[in-house]
Design a protein around this nucleic acid. Structure first.
Length: 556
DNA sequence: ACAGACCGCGCC
DNA sequence: AAAGGGCGCGGTCTGT
């Protein structure tokens, strides 16, 4: 069964039960204790909850101690369906869906609201429905329309699964923010002091950075702002050294006394600016880092985050991520997910055979690259990213000869992009159509050499995007299914355990120490479940190694 | 004062 | 001959 839910302020709201097909089976019921009503339904019927946006409803339920098993997130599903139809640029979200159905002016998407760990005094604004539509009725209508749309396309089965997996991902994201990533402030503070010096006021360079800035100035014989790349390039030019940019990898081969302090400065400044004391103040509270995840925030279906740079936690800081006393972190990482995804998508039997081992690149190297793992990896990444620089070209040729189906698959995707066609993931995530300016550049009637060259370049760029899209988006299909399977399994074997972090192809579970072995087992099983759900029976191996650690720094 | 471009670097 | 996918975020500079 389904229950459609509409929240009001202060835990009040309305509910209405529906059949699986979305037909109301009873009248709307108002309640002053929404969380209690939801909890009761969970106990008695385990319905699939139907609501406009998980992010608007579920955090409040979690705050009141209520977990739900399943939902259908109308906003996320709307976005997936619009994309499937090539309508990426139309406003997504529930309110827009209602407006489209009723022929009313479609409201623009509300812009992103940056959040922080600090509690806010104001309730987040809820979408106003156009034409004063009744939210419960409108949700039922939109659900029916989404079912019709999804059923009428070639990827019907895939989209149904994708809708469920994306909705489950939204639940998992809200739970990760709610429970938070265990973050030991004193460990982080000690690391900052050790590498930067004592804490300074915001904007005031810590001692170690000030010293390096002085060394840089001394090496150049005049003050040079190390935070200003053009100034650095000019400073080297005055010394008779031409550098194309001030990037670290460019400077590291330059022979000049300013290089060493500059490289050290860049590294430390990055830590200070991105994950220094201000970051701690803003993002860590009560021993938890609570980033705001944006499920499906990337066109490929990958997650993004808003604020806190949660998907860029530097390796050096992972030592601050520690399990509570008596608890463990179970770290799980899908190794080499994308080449394995390519093996399934392309049906390349040879590549499937190579994926049988835990380290795909080693096997690939033994198979085709004289045992040279580096080369095997470059070849594979070049195939998936469209890289051709340096030695990539010849290596890719070797790969193509040995694995024609796999390389042919990504090359077909690249060709589609170069021609402005869309490509899709396994479950039906769909690449956006190229922009107006892309069409102008590639369809130009101007046959000057410059215009033609630009057209070719723009076309190739889009081909690299679609080449990567098929792999990256199908990997996102798999991870969405994984999250759904894992959160359900965790609740069964160890209800106290929670997903607390997710980053493209790795997850962290915070669990009581005595549950760690069981959690590791469930992670592995969830990986198998995701593989079968998304890809069906396949010889391709998707190893998802799980290990219990005390700190994230010890993972892998 | 503010928005937006560009650079550079962190993560996958 | 050269050509590499996806992000978020903070810095400086430029234009208004």
């Amino acid at each position: 069964m389904l229950v459609v839910l509409e929240p009001h302020a202060e835990n009040a709201g309305r509910l209405r039960p529906l059949s699986d097909a979305g037909v109301p089976t009873g009248p709307p019921v108002a309640t002053a204790d929404l969380a209690g009503a939801v909890a009761e339904y969970e106990r008695s019927a385990r319905p699939r909850w139907l609501w406009a946006a998980t992010g608007e409803v579920y955090p409040e339920l979690l705050a009141r101690g209520v977990r739900v098993e399943r939902c259908h997130d109308l906003g996320h599903v709307e976005a997936l369906l619009l994309a499937y139809q090539g309508r990426h640029r139309e406003p997504r979200g529930f309110a827009a869906a209602v407006a489209r159905l009723r022929g009313l002016p479609v409201p623009e998407d509300v812009g992103p609201r940056r959040k922080s760990a600090q509690p806010t005094l104001f309730e987040p604004e809820r979408e106003r429905l156009p034409g004063d539509a009744d939210p419960l009725e409108a949700a039922v209508e939109v659900y029916a329309a989404q079912r019709r749309t999804a059923a009428g396309v070639a990827h019907a089965g895939g989209l149904r699964l994708l809708a469920a997996a994306e909705s489950a991902s939204a639940l998992a994201a809200a739970e990760m923010t709610h429970f938070g990533l265990p973050w030991r402030e004193e460990v982080h503070l000690a690391l900052l002091e050790e590498t930067l010096g004592p804490r300074t006021a915001p904007g005031v360079r810590p001692r170690r950075l000030a010293v390096l800035a002085d060394e840089i100035a001394a090496a150049f014989g005049r003050p040079v702002n190390p935070d200003h790349p053009p100034g650095i390039v000019r400073a080297f030019a005055r010394e008779g050294i031409d550098v194309p940019s001030a990037r670290a990898w460019v400077l590291k081969d330059v022979d000049h006394p300013a290089v060493a302090p500059l490289l050290a400065y860049k590294e430390l400044a990055r830590l200070w600016v991105a994950h220094g004391w201000s970051w701690l103040d803003e993002w860590v509270a009560d021993g938890r880092f609570r980033p705001d995840y944006v499920v499906g925030g990337v066109v490929s279906g990958r997650w993004a985050t808003r604020g806190g740079a949660a998907l860029q936690i530097p390796r050096a800081l992972r030592t601050a991520v520690r399990a509570d006393p008596g608890w463990k972190l179970v770290a799980a990482d899908a190794s080499q997910l994308e080449p394995r995804v390519l093996a399934v998508l392309s049906g390349d039997h040879r590549l499937a055979a190579v994926s049988g081992e835990d380290d795909l690149y080693t096997t690939l190297a033994a198979d085709a690259f004289d045992g040279k793992r580096d080369r095997a990896k470059i070849a594979m990444l070049s195939a998936m990213y469209g890289g051709t620089s340096g030695e990539a070209g010849p290596l890719l040729a070797v790969l193509r000869k040995r694995f024609p189906d796999a390389v042919g698959y990504v090359e077909a995707a690249a060709l589609a992009g170069e021609q402005g066609r869309m490509v899709r993931s396994r479950l039906g995530r769909t690449s956006p159509p190229p922009s107006e300016s892309w069409h102008e550049a590639t369809g130009s009637t101007d046959d000057s050499e410059d215009a033609e060259r630009r057209g070719r370049r723009v076309s190739r760029e889009w081909g690299r995007f679609t080449r990567n899209f098929v792999v990256q988006a199908s990997a996102a299909d798999w991870t969405a299914a994984l999250l759904g399977a894992l959160r359900r399994r965790l609740h069964l074997v160890s209800p106290e355990s929670h997903l607390v972090f997710f980053q493209h192809d790795e997850v962290l579970v915070h669990c009581p120490a005595e549950a760690a072995a069981a959690v590791c087992h469930e992670v592995t099983e969830a990986g198998h479940e995701a593989t079968t759900l998304v890809f069906g029976p396949t010889p391709v191996h998707f190893p998802l190694k799980a290990e219990a650690v005390d700190t994230y720094a010890d993972a892998k």
